[in-house]
Amino acid sequence: MAEKRITVRATRFDPAKDKAPRLQSYDIPFADESMVVLDALNHIKAHVDGSLSYRWSCRMGICGSCGMMINGIPKLTCNAFLRDYWPRSITVEPLNNFPIVRDLVIDMEDFMHKLKSIKPWIIRKQEYPLGAGEHRQTMDQIDEFRQFSECINCMLCYAACPVYGLNNEFLGPAATALARRYDLDSRDQGIKERLPVLANSEGVWECSFVGECSVVCPKGVDPAKAIQQTKLDTTMRFVLPYGNREE
């Protein structure tokens, strides 16, 4: 029986030589039903063309490094099985809406800047010494923010967001979801430090609720929900007389 094969087309771009990215086709063996797109890229790099560049690390949907466009949809390549595409070919491109550094590698500087701007850590008005004990939380308090804490910063939501594609100034889905994660944390007291970033014109109000960010999230986070709830929160804080109370 003839060996099963699959065609993988991958974006190639060498900034030293190319004016624009191009697609290169590779015909590779599809030997194992458990093969994912990342395995296919690794096969190409190991056996066909060692110059192919892409990011990856954990191979198990945790690190968020291997996000790419697969047949036009942002996905983690470690979680996209070849069997779901075969016998069709697979087109692998860098994540949409980001500058391309080389081949399938994007420049994530803008996202890192946005992530830092919402201060994704627990802010306390006054830090207590460690000896004073832990900050206790009930399961209900954890459930308030748990789903937003699942974000792995893979940036698939930014690649799926046409609002970010049209206006790179937009704070975007993951950064807002993570801001919400800390704003809802009973241990956090930093909402007023995050509000200037969240509530400005390039913050949550730029979102027109396409909703695709929540569709493509590989961890079940709902950034669209985080953004809309933040809109409601910021409005309430603005219109209600007690909205700006100290918390």
Partner: peptide, 15 residues
């Protein structure tokens, strides 16, 4: 020299 990065633009028919 060629640009260090390639900046893609949204195609008009993205929707």
């Amino acid at each position: 020299p060629p640009p260090r990065v390639y900046k893609p633009e949204m195609p008009r028919g993205w929707w």
